[in-house]
Design a protein around this nucleic acid. Sequence first.
RNA 1: GCCCCGUUCGUCUAGUGGCCCAGGACACCGCCCUCUCAAGGCGGAGAUCGGCGGUUCGAAUCCGCCACGGGGUACCA
Length: 476
Amino acid sequence: MTPIRTRFAPSPTGFLHLGNVRTALFAWLAARSTGGSFVLRVEDTDQGRYVAESEAAILETLRWLGLEWDEGPEVGGPHAPYIQSLRVDLYRSHAERLVEAGAAYWCTCTPERLAAMREEQQRNHRPPRYDRRCLGRQDEVAAERAAGVPAVLRLRMPEGTTEWDDAVHGPLRYDNGEVDDQVLLKSDGFPTYHLAVVVDDHLMEMTHVIRSDEWIPSTPKHLAVYRALGWEPPRFCHVPQVLDEQRQKLSKRRGARTVLEYAEAGYVPDAVVNAMALLGWSSGTGQEVFGRDELVAAFTLERVQPSPAVFDPQRLDSLNGLHIRRMSTEALMEALEFHLPGVSREARTRLVPLLRERMVTLRDATGLAAPLLGPAAREEGAALPPRRVSAAVAARLLDDAAREVEAGGLDDLEAMRHRLTEGLEAQGVRARDGFRVLYIAILGRPAGLPVFDAMAFIGAEESLRRLRAARAELES
RNA sequence: GCCCCGUUCGUCUAGUGGCCCAGGACACCGCCCUCUCAAGGCGGAGAUCGGCGGUUCGAAUCCGCCACGGGGUACCA
C-alpha cells in the first residue's frame, strides 16, 4: 500500500477536545498504517484569535496520546518552519502568481458594502457571493491601493463545476456558480486559511488532506487554487464530526472536556485513543478493543463512516477499565503515582493487584485505597453490627479474627479465611453476611478492597487496632 | 434565505439485492461465580433499518420525493 503523507493542522485558538483530536487520530493512523508520515502544522493566520498557551497545550495533548509527529514544531523537518505565521512571504509570493495568472484580483469593497450586498442577495433568495464589482475596475483599485486604501485579494472562482472523489464520501460535485470569490489575502497581509492550506499542503508534499467535514463546502475553492497554480491536488478525506449528547458539534463553549482534562481525571491514553477510533470508524471484524499497535494494523480510511457520531462517555469508561486491566503491574504502578501521591513504589506495587479490577479510572484508586493508607473513616450508614448479623455473632467474629491475627494468620490469608468461615457457619451465619463486620471494622464500609488482603497490607498491628476498636464499639 | 453532508436498537456500529422477521459493543435487567465491591461467564429486554413512492421474483442495501439532524454561507479556522 502506498504510504500516506498527511498532517494535522490545528489553529492555536484553544485547547483540544475529543472532536478535534479524533481527526488528528485518523490522520495519524492513516500515516502510521501505511508507513507514511505524519506532520504537525500550526495554522495561526488569524492574529485576532491567537491564544498563547494553546499551542503548548496542543503539543502536550498529542504527546500524551502518543500521536507523535515526524515533522513539525519542536522536531523540525525538511519543510520548516511548520508555523504559518512564519511562512507569510510564501503565501504572498504565491498570491502574486495567482494575480499574474488572472486567477485572483484585488478588492477594496468595504465590509459594510459586502454586508448590505449579502443581505440583499438573501432577500432575493440568491446564493450569497461577492458581486465582483472590483473585478471590472482593477485600474481604479490599483490606484486606491497605492493611496493606502485597505484591500483584500480575492480568488476568481472559475465557471463550471468542481468535482472530486472524497475518500469518505465518494464523488462530490459542486456548481461553481454557488461558490464565492473567496478572500485569499486579508487586508493585514496575512493569508486566509484557504490560501495557506493549499500552499502548505502542496509545498509540504501532502498526499492526503484529512480534515473535518465542515470543510466540504470550501473544497471547491481549494481545488480552484490548485488548478490555477498548476498543482496536482491531494486526496481529500472529509471525516465526520463528533457530536455531544445534544447532537451538537463538540465544543469547549458547550462544556466539552479537553483531552488533558480526561488525563487528569484518570483516563489512560490507550483507552481515549480506542474510544475515539470507534467514533466513525469500525474494523469490520467485530473487534472493538484495540491496543495501539492493533489499531494501526487494522485501520483504513476506507472504513471511516460518513455520518456524524455522538460521543458516549460510558463507552470511554468501559474501555478505560478494559485498558487498565490490560496494563502490566509495572505500568499501572507508574501510572498511579499521580493519584496515590506520597505512596511508595513498593506500596503501589502491592496495591495494584487489589485495585486493577476495580478501577474505571485511575482516579478511583484514591478512594479505593484510602482506608489502607490512612485511618478508615466510617462511612455513613455503615452500622455495626450490620443487618442480618447479631451483635453476639459480630463480637465473636471480631474476637476470632483478632486471635487469628495475633497468631500470625496474616501469613496465610486463605487458611485464616477458611477457619473464620467455619466459625461463622457453625453459628448458622453465612460468610458473606458475617464478613461484612470485618469490612466495616477494617475499611469503615461494607464493601471495598478484599478485606483479608487489606489486613495484610495494613499489617497485624493496625489490623488488631481496628478489630478491637470495632469490638469496643459493640460493647457500648 | 441559498448550498452541502448525513439518517440501522438510548449510544457507537455490522451490513453494499436473497445467508437479516437485522448481528456485535456500551449502558440497562437477571442468573452464575464469589469474603464485599468489582472483574469474569451466561442469558434477557431493546431497531416497523427516518417516512412515502418506485425498480426487482426479492431491498436496510438501487432510484425519486419528503421529513428530520448536522454543517457551510466571514478580511475565523
